[in-house]
Write a protein that binds this DNA or RNA. Structure first.
Lengths: 188, 188
DNA sequence: GTCTATAAAGAGATAGAC
DNA sequence: GTCTATCTCTTTATAGAC
């Protein structure tokens, strides 16, 4: 529209960002239900009414704050896929975005977050299934996805000491054989 | 106390049981926050005040309704342990009690449920770790536990079609190699 | 544009009638 | 012992002042 942002719009965008950051943090920490508009506003240093002004409703604020975990790349073979999956452990374990954490945290108790999680998993399963052989490819793919999900939940949300004490590569090393076993029909 | 239960106490126990059943179902379906005393009472066919009379508070009702998943048996060797773990898949997948589901559902968003889940996992990890060799036994045990957790969540709470479409034995068969790989130091 | 004040709804919990 | 009625608190959301 205009050649440069007017200070007004610029300021507005900054405030909106602060609100979103605060919302992501709180949603990620205590989930949808226990996060109040008031608490978000306090954390962002703004007025509660302003949050409503910007986002319309708590539901809409959550929709903007929570984001789905991106699905894995396409066009990889089975082995590359496992490596890629394990490579995301750094991300999944070390630096998972607050937006993704917000989604994960409320996944089991907030209907919309649950639906979003199911969709994200379905996409991930689709991608995985195309890369592995066998008529039970989708089942194997689903198991790979929930294995990663379990590790992520245990590490990020339940904060199990055993998992937090070691670097992601160590966990990746231990998980690799199991995931590889899931990629192909076994011998027995 | 008395030789036979007076009808009064008997009736009271039955009503209490109805309330607990209704509470377990609702807590398992929608979690702690979205479950209201009123809804529990309605489902149990009693008065909301009666629920409070019996259990004192919503918190206390949840404490009675949610139960931890029992930890695996002691004194097994590594292979037996995996078989036992996979054997519980029938239970974990087919007929997990409403009380356990209630705990799992609220695990990520209700502080007390989260603490209970962590403790249950810690106990399970302890048992597993004593049965497998290596100085990273606890880490391996933790990974085994979160793998099972991921499968349970995917099946019972997120209700992934891919997992619900097949019998538990099929899932157990596919998971076995991966879990076995986690029990012992790998060759490479 | 931002905040004050308040409306409207729903929750858990309680006191007392029956 | 069980239920009616209500209290009190907290929330989201809105209307209007500045």
């Amino acid at each position: 529209m205009s050649e440069r942002l007017p200070p007004r719009a610029e300021r507005r965008r900054r405030t909106e960002r602060h609100i979103l950051d605060a919302a992501r943090t709180l949603f990620a920490e205590v989930g949808y239900e226990r996060t109040t508009i008031r608490a978000v506003a306090r954390a962002a240093g703004v007025d509660p009414a302003l949050v409503m002004q910007y986002f319309g409703s708590k539901q809409e604020l959550f929709r903007h704050a929570a984001e789905a975990v991106p699905p894995p790349e396409e066009g990889l073979d089975a082995d590359e896929l496992v490596d890629h999956l394990l490579g995301t452990l750094d991300t999944k374990i070390g630096e998972l975005s607050p937006g993704s954490l917000a989604m994960l945290r409320s996944m089991l108790t907030h209907p919309e977050a649950g639906a979003a999680a199911r969709e994200a998993l379905a996409r991930q399963i689709d991608r995985l299934a195309t890369a592995i052989p066998g008529d039970d490819a989708r089942l194997r793919a689903a198991l790979m996805a929930v294995v990663m999900l379990g590790v992520t939940i245990g590490h990020q949300l339940l904060e199990l000491e055993e998992l937090r004490a070691v670097p992601p590569e160590e966990i990746a090393r231990l998980l690799r054989p199991g995931l590889l076993a899931l990629t192909g029909p076994e011998v027995s």
